[in-house]
Design a protein around this nucleic acid. Structure first.
Lengths: 110, 110
DNA sequence: ATATTATATTGCAATATTACGATAATAATT
DNA sequence: AATTATTATCGTAATATTGCAATATAATAT
């Protein structure tokens, strides 16, 4: 099938999974890290930096943009992509809430 | 293609992306949350709890097991799955390291 | 031994993702 | 206006993922 049955899960679970999913590709990790390192960035930088075709990078940027974690503003003939720190912090909180759960393991599998 | 070009990225980036990727499905989030809530768990629980076929859940459990974030021990005729808290903490640290970066946005896109 | 229960594996169909070349769109430069 | 530079979109091929029925495996119970 290839089609996730989102309707059987809670909104919260779908949302969290989506957030994780967009980060689940090394190109998108590399793009985010590059943006963070440079403080600002344009797509053409990335084409030189990463070893992927321009179309491919544009597509990954689009996915990141769709989640809101980055935003792009047109600057002349290029586009300045940067982290949307409001959404970044939302992601941070959601993922922290998930990982900072008390994972009590002691009374299991022993 | 559908094939990620992992060879062009740093190991660290691939590893981080893999960690995020396995969490990027609502069924796997739901499975983890169920295990955490119950402190212990068997697969059959999940078949009743989630609305997915036994084969599908077994497959998701396998993916989680492959990353090491859960472990399964045979208990008679069922299997007791639980969080591997060592790996859980590794995940937690990796993801925290990524999200706790200083995302300085002020001098960009303004 | 056979039946039952719990889980894993296999095989398959449907959809999604990744990647890229070609092309379009837009803005700056000449 | 034509050219160049930058990014987006379209179309397409290849591979991956999701989900399930059917079947296999393993342990327990009868």
């Amino acid at each position: 099938m290839g089609l996730t049955k989102t309707e059987i899960f809670a909104d919260e679970q779908n949302k969290l999974a989506s957030a994780f999913k967009v980060l689940g590709h090394p190109a998108r990790i590399a793009i985010l890290q590059h943006i963070i390192d440079k403080k600002a960035c344009i797509c053409n930088d990335l084409v030189d930096e990463l070893g992927l075709a321009q179309a491919t990078i544009s597509q990954h940027l689009k996915e990141l943009k769709n989640t809101g974690i980055i935003q792009g503003t047109i600057e002349g003939k290029s586009v300045c992509y940067c982290i949307n720190d409001v959404i970044w912090k939302e992601f941070q909180q959601e993922l922290n809430a998930f990982f900072n759960q008390d994972v009590n393991v002691s009374n299991c599998c022993g």
